[in-house]
Design a protein around this nucleic acid. Structure first.
Lengths: 129, 129
DNA sequence: GGGGACGTGCTAAAAAAACAGCATCTACTG
DNA sequence: CAGTAGATGCTGTTTTTTTAGCACGTCCCC
């Protein structure tokens, strides 16, 4: 397997990739603004260059500055991150994972979203039949 | 905030913590056996010592050997990991997260589990009312 | 009761990561 | 048109991580 995500990244690299994924597209300044205990500007740019060398991000020119984004599309990265989480913390049991997730942000769950989730499950039942 | 999990760990440290969480309790040998490209035995023990110094794991004597476990209980670590995942990859939207999760291991979803999930959602609806 | 298997602690070295500084280029502003 | 603000590329240094080695202890079994 190709181990698409995170496993091999260093601490800062991971922090940066998280930000890049979160923002979708980010300049060095954007990244620095969100890094905990941000290092110098130079340092951030250096790390972005390294990440680009390693093939984790790529940049395009946007006016005067570079905008970076991840080379692995967010869907794949999500997928991979979820797999890992499931394996590490939930022994691959979806049930527990759902429970924790439901518990994670209960206030944020609107009625509509709950309905949507119910639909998803209903559909999964149909397919599995 | 105390930043309970992972964010500040180095690459190897993170790999090791993942294993410790996965196993619940692990000897140096256990850890080494599961590390990708495992280093020497000594190296693993050294890292475990470092992790213990930093307060991430603690050991107890088990016959001749040390058994390590995480100091932060698994529930809290899960919670924290889920929060992070949600924030980083799903913009805190549960809907997307559920969808990805449902998609992640479709074959493993038994009918019973699906029913259980449906119950959870039903219950959440009741509570939210 | 000698030897091997398996554990530990400690220490030092090698490798990788993280950082900062400097020279330069460009665009805008007053 | 200067001058300033904000970029970049590159390079070297410092710090942290990661690793291995050695000395010692204990248990077991032949």
């Amino acid at each position: 397997m190709l181990e698409t995500t995170h496993g091999e990244l260093s601490r800062r690299e991971r922090q940066i990739m998280d930000i890049v994924y979160q923002l979708g597209s980010a300049s060095a300044a954007d990244v620095r603004a969100r890094l905990p205990q941000p290092p110098s500007y130079s340092a951030v740019r250096a790390m972005l260059r390294v990440l680009e060398d390693k093939g984790h991000v790529e940049h395009r020119q946007d006016g005067p500055r570079y905008m970076y984004e991840a080379t692995v599309p967010v869907e794949a990265a999500r997928r991979s991150a979820v797999d890992r989480l499931l394996r590490t913390f939930f022994d691959n049991s979806l049930g527990e994972a759902f429970a924790t997730l439901l518990d994670a942000a209960p206030s944020k769950l609107s009625r509509e979203e709950l309905d949507r989730l119910a639909d998803m499950i209903e559909q999964a039942k149909q397919e599995g039949r």
